[in-house]
């Protein structure tokens, strides 16, 4: 086992266990851990299966096989970051909506008979465009 193989096996195993432990302790939600787990598993497999790594890097035109591992690592990091950006945007949207609903509710409660309380709100305040944005 070459030194670079040893290093990448150690690091991917450590990452794998760290992520699993965080999920077990509920510090990390399952849906945010799946890409991390996939990434570290792929790197682990490619580190152990030297001939697969060599085949793949040859096919990609990369002369030095271990640098293919870096490519895989960077690819997963990009995927994870995109996933996070989308998740943050969704949370931002939800957070804004909850704050707005709360403000409306407080106003209704503090001024009974006030303008906001008068019309019987029987549909929730939702933006028709949400039908497109929200999925599950």
């Amino acid at each position: 086992m070459s030194r670079v193989t040893f290093l990448s096996v150690c690091m991917s195993v450590a990452l794998l266990f760290y992520i699993l432990e965080m999920v077990r302790r509920r510090r990390l939600r399952e849906e945010y851990s799946i890409l991390w787990l996939c990434g570290s598993l792929v790197i682990l497999i490619l580190s152990v299966k030297r001939e697969w790594l060599e085949g793949l890097s040859l096919a990609a035109g990369i002369a030095y096989p271990p640098s293919f591992l870096f490519l895989v690592g960077i690819l997963f990091i990009i995927l994870i970051l995109i996933h996070f950006s989308i998740a943050i945007s969704k949370l931002h949207q939800m957070n804004k909506k909850i704050a707005q609903e709360l403000a409306l509710m407080q106003q209704e409660r503090s001024s009974p008979g006030g303008p906001a309380a008068a019309p019987d709100r029987d549909t929730p305040a939702t933006d028709p465009g949400d039908a497109l944005k929200q999925q599950g």
Partner: peptide, 22 residues
Amino acid sequence: GSPDGTSAAAKRAGAIVLDLPC
């Protein structure tokens, strides 16, 4: 958080309705 008339329809039929804001 349905954008359609789900909440109103449920209330009209006599249900207790909880509207999640999102």
